[in-house]
Design a protein around this nucleic acid. Structure first.
Lengths: 346, 346
DNA sequence: CCCTGATCTGTGCACGTTCACAGAACCGCC
DNA sequence: GGCGGTTCTGTGAACGTGCACAGATCAGGG
């Protein structure tokens, strides 16, 4: 099947892509005019426009993104950076929804989303290099830690950025929910149902969300706050939640209310409670946080705080887009509503 | 810290990035030599190499990706395309793991992963345009449907591609599991535990996975297969699973075994069984498919088929990378092991 | 008849990189 | 000293696009 002497053999491994020049040739005009049509500018005669539009479909022209972004100094792409241990990325239902929300906002604005999972240090270097390579016009960053190298890179490049959640010490734009207030609200209602020995399984205290939820809990309980009834765990995970509940019951068998820092944690706790024969909500009231799929599927369904995950992603992406347009980011961040949802578990 | 009136005003909005030229100036050599150092070629004197390496960190040089991909005709990026209704993307635990597996393989090869969620028709057009724009050197495609426009675009561009799952009529590379064989295996063991009225909740019959699982079930049951005991649903979802189980029990109250097409479906079915007072596994044996987080957390834990989701993503990505290197894709696809896992539910 | 302004079109340059090529410097050897 | 080979370096393309600029054409008015 190798072609004969006809210069370029037929069935070449990959057909050369048509350029703006080919379109110009086919339409009998110059590159500049084609460029004007493609970018929808004024000052093009109807005749030329029609000929060019016809030529475009004929030769199958699609603009070369690399060339365009080289000359335009922008890529029409925004990075979605999630900084989590791999496992959690899968487990945490919020991240998927945040991703979809951000993706929707970016799609609407005709931007691409490049998602980067950074876990190991090697990944950190790779992502930093990538961002410095100028491959993205902005970044949405999820669950950054304190003193995060990625955060530093982004700040140094002063790339349009929005964080989901509010990493301490960062001045960039962020969107989030009022973890403190919501935690207080759900803890207060737990109190109002007549519980007296209320514990908390506090997770992710290296993150603002974890710290704030604990603070809200503490504030709600006031004098009745007992440090011995706080069980800290490292991640928002089911298994750690189950273990923490077990530890808590050993230490204080008389607990009658538990605020778990997330629905996954609550689901784990619920499992332990069931194993140890405690009825929920009769013996122990249990509440979670996130309003994820867990909450609705637990038996009994969890009372929890509704987290507008999709909205967070969308808002963060929109903030990045606004900054790309040259607008200044909102100072102090954006807070989205996160109402308490009451179900059967408390 | 701001400089004085030296031409370029102080605090300029964005500092111009250093180019290969700046490095050459600083090191007192030419562009070509810098390029050779950056790309690790031979024929560079130690002296020049040292001076250039020093200059690179001094001026903070990072290669411009757009310029490089323009001249190299490749982007060092692979698209990860997931074609699902948004909700399912979040619910389906496999997709997250597939994504991570693919991401890991691509990272190892120093490729970027661009993830594209296509749901609406608008998204289809956008993604097609994106791929035609030459922004990716290859594509991993998850859960394509029959007669998928994206599939057609990819074929037309003859872009290095690998599918996760085996869309009918597609000749490109794919990786998957033996849905047929695994479904048969788990159905046979269900039979072996002495069940006689065995039903199946069959999902996603517009996809190869759904069709194959049903076929495997049918083959295992042989003469005992009863079409009236097959309840079809459209997606692998919890809620549909719950509803299907209800319908099944109304139609045939004496079922004593159920093969649900996925763990999520099984979890829904389990919920219904519990509500209607059937004990699992005593009254009804129940098995799922996927070995997702659902399976371990159900009460009782589900017997199921282990699906190596991360491995599928990794294998698909590696196939794409191989094709980019110019190797021919494996004909007939790659099958990964998917062993049956026995737990308490059957 | 020329000038002014509006509309439309073509051309050269720049973006930052890689690659092919030409040439310089050095070595050892006849 | 000349010569072939190896090692090293600089230079001019090219990749495909957008943009600034210079012209071209045309209409209308003094």
């Amino acid at each position: 099947m190798r072609g004969y002497g006809e210069d370029m053999g037929k069935a070449s491994p990959r057909r050369k892509r048509a350029t703006v020049h080919d379109v110009a040739m086919a339409a009998g005009v110059s590159r500049g005019t084609v460029s004007r049509v493609v970018n929808g500018e004024r000052y093009v005669s109807d005749e030329a426009r029609k000929a060019i539009e016809k030529a475009i479909v004929e030769v199958g022209y699609v603009p070369n993104t690399a060339a365009r972004s080289l000359v335009m100094q922008r890529t029409q792409a925004v990075a979605f950076i999630v900084h989590e241990p791999d496992r959690l990325f899968v487990e945490d239902p919020n991240i998927g929804e945040i991703l979809l929300g951000a993706n929707a906002a970016l799609s609407d604005a005709d931007y691409q989303m490049v998602s980067l999972v950074v876990d190991s240090e090697k990944d950190t270097a790779r992502v930093a290099r990538y961002l410095q390579g100028g491959f993205a016009d902005g970044a949405v960053i999820v669950s950054a830690r304190q003193d995060d190298p990625i955060t530093r890179v982004v700040e140094r490049l002063d790339l349009p950025t929005a964080f989901v959640g509010h990493p301490p010490g960062v001045t960039a734009a962020w969107v989030g929910i009022d973890n403190h207030g919501s935690a207080r609200a759900i803890s207060e209602r737990l109190l109002a149902t007549g519980r007296s020995r209320i514990a908390m399984i506090a997770a992710a205290l290296d993150r603002d969300s974890g710290v704030d939820r604990l603070a809200g809990f503490r504030e709600a309980l006031g004098d009745r706050f007992d440090p011995a009834l706080v069980e800290p765990i490292s991640h928002y995970s089911y298994t750690e939640g189950a273990a923490a509940m077990r530890a808590l019951l050993e230490r204080a068998p008389d607990v009658d209310g538990v605020f778990a820092a997330s629905d996954a944690v609550a689901a784990g706790a619920l499992e332990t409670l069931r194993e140890l024969g405690r009825r929920v909500p009769e013996d122990v009231g249990l509440v979670g946080f996130d309003d994820s799929a867990w909450a609705r599927r637990c038996q009994p369904a969890l009372s929890t705080v509704h987290q507008p995950a999709g909205g967070l992603g969308r808002a963060a992406a929109e903030s990045v887009l606004a900054q790309i347009r040259g607008e200044l980011p909102e100072l102090g961040g954006i807070l989205l509503e996160s109402p308490v949802v009451w179900r059967e578990s408390a």
